[in-house]
């Protein structure tokens, strides 16, 4: 385990810039989550660290050593791919043993068996060890591919949306499990997702990527409460932050173009009149869709709120976020 540092990394595929001058430090033992929509450069960042891609510019430093020119095998990182993680021609056990039998690892067979047993126990796949990799459910496959990373003792675990293909329940279970394992092992993780719940619950730090640029790197709470831009603010929070013209409400600071309102920034009962469009019961939350001077606004209310379509309700902002014309925070 070690600190992983990217220094001014850029990577383009032809004319397509995938990563643009990214500098980032994953502290030893940290759980860093990279957030961003499809095409933001998350996978490319992981591949650069793994050594599967060479950066056009910049350095990659692992544990104080410049590894930019090293092969993937020499870097001692583990990676869980978004797809295609298990070898279909091997059993689950062989899949788990594969990294341990590599020439750089080269462990004795008893040690391999011991580690596989341990990891299988943690991931609850012991009874599946002798199955073919193709004879597993999606959730089991994903647990085995996470296991393939856990059996090793790499400097960093790179995980590319490892839970995105699973159903909600399994995702919730594994999310907690993974966080626990990472804590127990003291492992360093760089974890890619576009699921904000995963980011909020697991991350010690979140990096927000926007078209290959790292726009904010901070603990998740800080990104939620103190985002640098509309883009960063939109990454976290459910429902999404409401962005409205700043002049809708009094009290906007000079230069403010937009006002950002999360549900907790909206006080109901005084201020501008808004119309109720819909009340949406999601089970764990109840969303109130409002129409305010031609703009949509979504906030949360108590489950049994006595509101219906067409009702009027007054809203006012409470310590909101302001952004300038470029979307940057004021």
């Amino acid at each position: 385990m070690a600190e992983v540092r990217l220094e001014g990394i850029s990577k383009a595929f032809g004319a397509q810039v995938a990563i643009d001058d990214v500098s980032l430090t994953v502290p030893d033992g940290a759980f860093v989550v990279l957030l961003g929509p499809t095409g933001a450069g998350k996978t490319t960042t992981l591949r650069l660290i793994a050594g599967l891609e060479r950066p056009d510019a910049g350095r990659i430093v692992i544990g104080g050593h410049d590894v930019t020119a090293l092969t993937p095998a020499e870097r001692n990182v583990a990676m869980v791919f978004q797809q295609y993680s298990l070898y279909p021609h091997m059993s689950v056990r062989e899949n788990l043993a594969f990294p341990l039998r590599s020439p750089v690892c080269n462990l004795p067979e008893e040690e391999i068996a011991r580690r596989i047993g341990e990891v299988a126990e943690i991931l609850q796949i012991t009874h599946k060890l002798d199955n073919r990799a193709t004879a597993l459910s999606g959730g089991e496959m994903q647990r085995v591919s996470i296991g393939r990373a856990l059996v090793r003792d790499p400097v960093i675990h790179l995980m590319d949306e490892p839970l995105s293909s699973l159903d909600a329940r399994l995702r919730a279970d594994l999310r907690i499990e993974l966080k626990r394992i990472q804590k127990d092992l003291g492992a360093t993780m760089l974890y890619v997702t576009h699921d904000q719940t995963e980011a909020m619950t697991m991350a010690t730090h979140v990096g927000v990527l926007d078209h290959g640029r790292l726009v904010q790197f901070a603990p998740p709470r800080e990104i939620y409460e103190d985002p640098v831009s509309i883009y960063a603010a939109s990454r976290l929070g459910s429902p999404r932050i409401n962005i409205l013209p700043a002049d809708l409400f009094p009290g906007a600071p000079a230069g403010a173009e937009s006002i950002g309102l999360r549900p907790e920034h909206i006080r109901l009962g005084e201020g501008q009149e808004a119309q109720v469009v819909r009340l949406e019961h999601l089970g764990d939350q109840t969303r109130l869709h409002l129409r305010l001077a031609g703009h949509d606004l979504i906030t949360l209310v108590a489950a049994h709120a006595d509101l219906k379509r067409g009702d009027s309700i007054a809203v006012s902002p409470q310590t909101p976020l302001y952004f300038d014309a470029d979307g940057n925070r004021i």
Partner: peptide
């Protein structure tokens, strides 16, 4: 898929 070989490269194989 290339990912299979890439996984092996990362796992320490040539």
């Amino acid at each position: 898929p290339r990912e299979y070989e890439e996984a092996a490269l990362i796992d320490g194989y040539t």
